[in-house]
Amino acid sequence: MSKKVTLAHGAGGRQTSELIDQVFKAHFANPELTSDDAAVLTVDGAKLAFTTDGFIVSPAEFPGGNIGKLSICGTVNDLACMGAKPLYLSCAFVIEEGFPMDKLEEIVTAMEKTAAEAGVKIVAGDTKVAGKGQVDGVFITTTGIGRIQEGMETSGFKAKPKDAVIVSGDVGRHGCTILLARNEFGIEADVTSDCAPLWGTVKTMMDTTKNIHVIRDATRGGVGTVLYEIAEQSNVGIRLNAQDIPVADGVRGVCGMLGLEPLYLACEGRLVIFAPKEEAPALLETLRQGKYSANAAIIGEVTEDMPGRVVMRTEIGAETLLPPPGGELLPRIC
C-alpha cells in the first residue's frame, strides 16, 4: 500500500478493502467483526443487527434527497439487509462553522420524515462544530440497531451455485445524480437519486419467502463492487447478462459521455439479492409491486466455475470479465 491515504482508499473498491484489511482488521479483529452490512449479535437470546455509517456527500442537497435522508437510508438499509427490522438510531453531526441554520433544519426535517417512514426512532445524538474549513458543510454519522426477524439468515458468505441474482431497480442513479449536481463536466440529464429506505421492501420479500441467501445494499462502489465482494466471500462465480441490467436512459447517456460503467456508480436505494432460482420469479413479482423496486430485474446467476469472478455475457453473446472495481472513478475521454 502507498504510504498516504488517497481518495481511492475511500472509493469502496479494492483499495478500500486493502485499507480495511491491513489497518482496521489488523487491530480490531474479533469473532463478531463483520464483513457484511451489519454485525449480527446475540444479546440475552435476542438476535440483533448493529451497524454504523458516515456521510460526507457534496453537495449536501441533490435531486431526490439530501445528506439527512441519505444518513437514515444508509443505516436502515444496512440493517434491513440482515433481515432486521430497524429499531433505534443515533446520529452524530459535525457541522462547519458558518453553516446556515435553515439548511440544517432542512436536513434534520428530511431525517425525521425518512425515519418515520422506516419505522425507526432516533434516540441519541451528538453535535460538534468544527472551525471554518475543517469540514465541508456538514458530516453526519448514524448508528443503528435492529432485530433480526425469525428465520432470516442472510450473509454475503451464503451465495450458492444456481442462485438467481436480482437487483431491486435500475443501477447507478445516485452516483450519477451527485456527479451531475457537482456540475464539473457541464452535463445535464433528468436523473434523480434512488435514495430510499428499504426496510419495507425487505419486509415484503420476507413475506414472500425467507429462503433468501444474500441481501446487500449497493452503495458506494455500486452493484459491481457488491457482486465482486459476494463472489469472493461465497467463493462462487457470477454470470451476468449485460442486456438484463436495468440502467435509466439519462444514466446511460452520462456514462457514455464520460466513459464510465453504470455498475460502478453508487446507489443508495438498491438491493442486490441472491436467492435460489425457484424463489426468483415470486420475489421478482413482489419487488415489482413495491414503491422503490418497480424496475427490479434478474440480472444473472451464480456459477460453480470461475470462483471470485464476475463474468458478463455481452451483446454479441460472448463472455468477458466485468473489470474488477478500481479506485476513484475517473472520466475517460481519450
Partner: peptide
Amino acid sequence: FGDLIRVPGTAKSLAVARSEGARVQIVY
C-alpha cells in the same frame, strides 16, 4: 483528461502531486 491522473512520472503521478496540494482539475 481523467486518464492521465494516475500515469506514473519519474518520481510521482499527478494523483500523488494532488495529494501533496497540487491543483489538478479533470476536464471533459
